[in-house]
């Protein structure tokens, strides 16, 4: 069964873990996951859900860790126009904006 991301986020937080949420807030062109898609990450790097077909999750988890350590929420953009993102590899050629925040 596919886990419900927001239920997992609540459960992990209640277990006393540090938890961050990443949410797709906008997409352009061909992108694998629509706006509203979410990924939850904990301090050990466990994750549930997705914000892409697996292409940018690694980079998002890195930012999510900063948020768990107290950094403010941030808006990330991945797409072909962004060189770093290209290295990360959103291979579908689309662009996505992902909002990353800690669960506090």
């Amino acid at each position: 069964m596919v886990e419900d991301v927001l239920s997992v986020a609540q459960a992990w937080k209640n277990e006393g873990r540090k938890v961050a949420l990443a949410t797709v807030v906008a997409t352009w062109g061909s992108s694998p996951r629509p706006a509203g898609s979410q990924l939850v990450v904990d301090e050990d790097g466990r994750m549930q859900g997705s914000v892409s077909g697996g292409c940018i999750e690694g980079a998002v988890v890195k930012e999510a860790r900063d948020c768990m350590e107290g950094a403010p929420p941030r808006l990330l953009e991945f797409g072909v126009s962004n060189e770093q993102a290209w290295e990360v590899g959103l291979a579908c050629g689309g662009t996505v904006k992902v909002y990353v925040e800690a669960l506090t």
Binding site: L6, S7, A9, Q10, K13, N14, L21, T23, Y99, E101, A102, L103, T104
Partner: peptide, 24 residues
């Protein structure tokens, strides 16, 4: 996101109510 708010949202979802979360 605040945990209290997430809990309220999850309760609304499991009660099959129509919910919207707004984040600036």
């Amino acid at each position: 996101m605040n945990l209290d708010l997430l809990q309220q949202l999850n309760e609304a979802r499991s009660a099959k109510r129509r919910a919207a979360m707004v984040r600036w």
